[in-house]
Design a protein around this nucleic acid. Structure first.
Lengths: 326, 326
DNA sequence: CAGCTCGCTGAAAACGATTTAAAATCGCAG
DNA sequence: CTGCGATTTTAAATCGTTTTCAGCGAGCTG
């Protein structure tokens, strides 16, 4: 593959001049510029970004760590992250932590070794100290890592209130919330807070069952519902699920158990990702997170930090999508 | 961030010695090795992979270009690709072509500039010449690019035969196939070949409607079915769809049109990705591609090429998953 | 005409690693 | 004490860029 020296030789100038031409720095005569551009085209010269990155200490690579690449939420999120990063000339190195702390630590080191310019953390298997040590601009999705690391999230509390109030408005009297794991610094847990407080405020009986963070397969979710949720299910007439996959699984489970939905049991989910939008039996009632805007904001905040603009937290508004399950 | 010189200084040796220690090359006394390892730990030294890559001309980065990152098939495929690449110490740079030829060309150049070690092509917006020029090891999913570029695919022909025969066995007499775009070198089109030939062999009336490659949203698919398929739909009692998303959309469409499935119309899909596995209303009858094995093989063939092992094409067996739609 | 600025160009020093080739050290036999 | 192979270490070149600094005419000013 041709390098800058080959171009210089072919154009009959020095490498400095070639470099300056490509980067539009300083004075270059029309004449030499033309010669150089011809040489570049003729040799199909592709500037070596590795050499560039070495000198400039700027790789234009962003690391993205997610718990599960094939989960519809993260697939969609990465889709948008990639698009916005690409617009600003950044590339993304995706890492699949599988929620394994060991693997996540390895990825962190790997990204440091590759001198990624920044890091988007969507997986949260390690304690906050591990991320603070990374010495790289970071943004976090849905978790408060430290005051100097901006986070992006949907307005989980408001979403929780909306979901709960919706169930109450639909005449539910005994409510269940299936949450994610209630680790203190995960912002998704504001949904449970909102649920609890809203039920209290309206004097509604409630219960919270703590689930796992990301359950990948239908069977995982099914077993969870069968073992943890089913024994209590008939005590409730409304369930707020912390994600759409579990909401759908619950719908399937309840249907098979001859519980009529929405008449006997109403279900609200959370996310409204591709899977939910595709789904028509049932059309889930759910709280929509603006995944596109979240992706864009994560990117923007990170690149702002990298390029020395100050960055701040960002919380997005959510929206109730009323379907057929409530 | 500490570099190799800092380590050398701290350990009181030369950089050469540090380098040799890390790479286990040549003689190093127990004593100096220990001193160096201590210095590395103390400084939290992370070797600069960019500098390494520059010298070794080996970046350990693989480019992966897909048409749509958030499509369940590709999300799952990338999931596996990442896992296997990571096992062999490679990283992946994901690119979302959106099936835009211009964008795909840009990504190709970008990956060349970043000196990716190889390329996994799952998007096929350009003519084959564009890929031949890339001068980088490539593997292709589901497309024959040239005899020197290995491809990986499921046994599309056999899948097509299985699907068609299954419909015939279920007593269908007039069959429809909704294909992807019938570009000659896409291996997915063997499904249509198989459909055509199997129908002919059994003396069955058939028709093929050509669809788009990847339709992202339910609405896109819905409109396609409404406009292109619906006018003919009642002529048929069995449909073989070239992917599960279109199969599901057709199911929804037909149900709303009061066509009873499977009694009046039987539907077979293709893929069996996460979306399909999650889906319970209906449980689709479909042809399963082994996405995990495809991902693994793509990776393995590419890395073999990079590391100078010869590589060959690979076609995976498929499997009929019988659901409730036939 | 000395001195300055403009416009243009190039040589050389980085960036942080690896590798080659050569030098230093050691132990030990002659 | 010398010579020599076996160890162990190092200086210097290299990878492909960018940047700093300096040089050199030409034209202008005073």
């Amino acid at each position: 593959m041709a390098n800058i020296k080959d171009v210089a030789k072919k154009a009959g100038v020095s490498v400095t001049t070639v470099s300056r031409t490509m980067n539009n720095r300083g004075y270059i005569s029309k004449d030499t510029r033309k010669k150089i551009e011809e040489a570049i085209k003729e040799l199909d010269y592709q500037p070596n970004q590795i050499a560039r990155a070495l000198f400039k200490k700027h790789s234009y690579v962003l690391g993205v760590i997610v718990p599960d690449l094939s989960h519809p939420f993260f697939a969609e999120l990465i889709n948008f992250i990639e698009a916005f990063a690409s617009d600003r000339n950044y590339k993304i190195l995706v890492c699949n932590s599988l929620q394994d702390a060991e693997k996540e630590k390895e990825y962190l080191d790997m990204l440091r070794q590759h001198r990624a310019d920044g890091l988007i953390m969507c997986s949260h298997s390690l304690n906050v100290d591990a991320y603070r040590k990374v010495q790289m601009p970071i943004v976090s999705f849905d978790r408060i890592i430290s005051s100097s690391i901006p986070y992006v999230a949907s307005d989980n509390y408001r979403g929780g209130v909306m979901a709960t109030k919706h169930l109450i408005n639909k005449n539910c009297h005994r409510l269940l919330h299936i949450s994610g794991p209630l680790t203190s610094d995960l912002l998704a847990n504001r949904r449970a807070d909102a649920f609890r407080e809203t039920c209290a405020k309206f004097g509604i009986d409630y219960k919270i069952i703590e689930g796992a963070y990301v359950k990948a397969t239908f069977e995982d979710n099914w077993n969870f519902i069968k073992n943890e949720v089913a024994p209590h299910l008939r005590e409730f007439d409304g369930v707020f699920c912390s994600n759409d996959i579990i909401a759908y699984t619950l719908y399937v489970f309840a249907s098979k158990a001859k519980i009529r939905i929405p008449e006997q049991l109403k279900i609200v989910g959370y996310d409204y990702h591709n899977f939910t939008r595709m789904l028509k039996y049932p059309i889930l009632t759910t709280i929509k997170q603006p995944i596109d805007q979240i992706g864009k904001k994560l990117c923007a905040l990170l690149i702002d930090q990298i390029e020395n603009v100050s960055a701040d937290n960002y919380v997005f508004d959510v929206q109730l999508i009323e379907g057929e399950t409530t």
